[in-house]
Simulated assay, not measured.
Amino acid sequence: MHGFTFSSTAHLICAAGSATGLAVQCASCGARNVLLVTDAGILRHGLLDGVLPGFAAAGVNVAVYSEVLADPSEAVVLAATAQARAMQADLIVGFGGGSSMDTAKLVAYLAYPGQQQGLADIYGVDQATGPRLPLIQVPTTAGTGSEVTPISIVTTATGKSGVVSRQLLPDLAILDAQLTLGLPAAVTAATGIDAMVHAIEAYTSKLRKNPLSDLLAREALRLLAANLERVVQVPDDLPARQAMLLGACLAGQAFANAPVAAVHALAYPLGVSFHLPHGLSNALVLQQVLRFNLSVARPLYAELAPLVLGDRLQPGLDMAEQLIEELRRLHVATGLPLSLSEAGVTRDSLAQLASSAMQQQRLLVNNPRHVSEADALGIYTAAF
């Protein structure tokens, strides 16, 4: 075993209904002025209705920044930071999907009083080294795992850029499946597959694979595979949704320490160029990337197959192949588009997508098999 480091969010609360105590958690941190970072859909669907009244009762001032969009831009991050500074926020809450939580991480860092670094200064790995405001994350989708990762992704003028720093790890994550009950089936499906990708890629990560991430990835994959179809078909099954939320969190802890690879590297350009949801982008290239990796990752995929297939595993047949076929079956069962063309991607864009994917070397270096630009084009073509 090689030496490794492992970091994660300090505290977790995993219980249905736990988000109603958010204000009490903020008050226990000594907060007086809280900025809650979210998106307009969260407000529109009333997910804050049971949360915000608690702040007055706890004697805590709260303001809401609700302009986060999918794949948040630098402008969104800077606008939320400006609001936090203007109200002298002393704690930041990210409430929503990965975009809201990613934005909240950066706001907590950039809005710290006297912060000397700007957003442009902290892109890359371990560039953000200063202090930040206290940070609580409340996910409303079971997918990104952003509540336990030190990563924030921002859309810039040239594509997607990441800020990776232990300083972005939240202080507390609240996993409340009641917040996920109203999700559309397509969002539930795409975010669930996204979480499964996190677990699979963490388990096969080339550079930082480690025993703790392996344990978390395996349990995450077991929980996610056992409950994904159920939450799509029976959306009000609260125990299944709580299991999905925990699975996504465990997968997030895994890939925060054993990073994701080619699936994500090829998914990002799809989000930038065609504005596809991140989870769907991952789903569309997942099977083809796994097939590309088979020549080197077959034993690891075989180890994961029983966790995904359960009693559907067929003894005597290639287990890695069974894993890929089961992931395809799940993809079909969730009702998501099955191909790039079905999702609106054009054939004449594939070469540019492959070129853009090559800019994600931060991720590609983790892939178990080297990916060239020609390989990326081949994967996109096979997924088309």
Rank of each mutant, 00 (worst) to 15 (best):
F4R: 04
N293Q: 05
V148D: 04
V64H: 07
F274H: 15
V272I: 11
Y112H: 10
D90R: 00
L294T: 09
T188S: 13
V62L: 10
A79G: 15
P259S: 01
D90T: 01
P315N: 06
V62S: 02
R32S: 07
A320N: 07
L336W: 00
T140F: 12
P150G: 04
G50E: 07
G335M: 03
L12H: 09
S349K: 12
K206R: 14
V64E: 03
T156D: 15
I379Q: 04
G145N: 02
G162E: 11
L350W: 00
A261C: 12
A75N: 13
Y109A: 12
E325P: 08
A243G: 00
H45Q: 15
L207K: 14
G162L: 11
A376D: 06
Q253V: 06
A265R: 01
R230W: 04
V187H: 00
S99F: 02
L224I: 09
A80L: 08
Q117G: 00
E74F: 04
E303K: 04
A199I: 08
D375H: 10
C249K: 02
I136K: 02
Q322M: 13
Q253H: 10
L224W: 02
V51P: 10
A89M: 11
I92T: 06
I174F: 07
F384E: 05
L78C: 14
P259L: 07
Y380V: 04
Q83R: 13
V234E: 07
L363Q: 09
Q314S: 05
